[in-house]
Amino acid sequence: MTSPEKPQADRFPNGSDAFPHKHLLGISGLQPWEILYILDQAEEWVALNRSGASKHDDRLAGLTIINAFFENSTRTLLSFEIAGKRLGADVVNMHAAQSSVKKGETLIDTAVTLNAMRADAIVIRHGSSGAVQLISEKVDCPCLNAGDGQHEHPTQALLDALTIQRRKGPIERLTITICGDVLHSRVARSNIFCLKQLGAEVRVAGPPALLPDALDRFGVETFSNFEEALPGSDVVMMLRLQNERMNGDFIPSPREYFHLYGLEEARLALARPDALVMHPGPMNRGVEIASNVADNLDRSAINEQVEMGVAVRMACLDILTRKARRVEGWS
């Protein structure tokens, strides 16, 4: 994997050349400098979000953002909602449970309906891989993927990259180990694509039945023994193990999983002494991560990830609506 070439003089080209995509459907397909551009923009929002009582920048005032969530979510939905509101947009949330999807309407009909309401951006979470791309082909406004099936969750990878970069500096020098149920994880896929694009060495550990095929084609090294993956790691990223996979189909029991793959202090000691601990949340304490590791503020960046999530989503909403807002250079 080539290391990202940052345009050094101005860092980034002017106007829409810096991010020439209409939608954010995934990390796959983004160039390293495009990823870095989003992270760069997000840094400014981190500053605003930390600036005190008033956290408003009303550049999206008058714009309507629909959060169309066909699958349940608490933190991602909240994060997108806060991001939109801090930018001054009118944010509307559509939950599948309340929508006509339950009445048998097809996804495309729902998309066309949302489009007819003249949304300026649609944030979509759906349980089926590729569903966000399908919607994006039927609507006029930018679509942001907030997680589609087992495919991608790009803003999660961006917020993770921002968190790592702020704590550890440029990602291209780092070794990052991702552990857990990679097979069913869109977070893992987006992170693998993102971190590889930014030039990191990425290792993946987990039970073989929960690692997808052909990971080597993505430039990733795989380990069935977590402890062999840890030495030299700058970052240890744990994935959530869904309850329904722990009942004997994939994993005999939560305690056996923790025995082999749980991140506890002794195991963390195998990584670099200053290794950063991350988790996309929500955590299963005692299953994939020990409480004292998760709560160790010197090592764990888990709360910071949530904070960076708002900033990254503000950056994405800002960048993708620039054309509609006729920002100079983005027509």
Partner: peptide, 15 residues
Amino acid sequence: TSGETATRLGLSSAP
């Protein structure tokens, strides 16, 4: 079918 494409697209696959 299990392989690079299924992994990239996040599609459930069989060997």
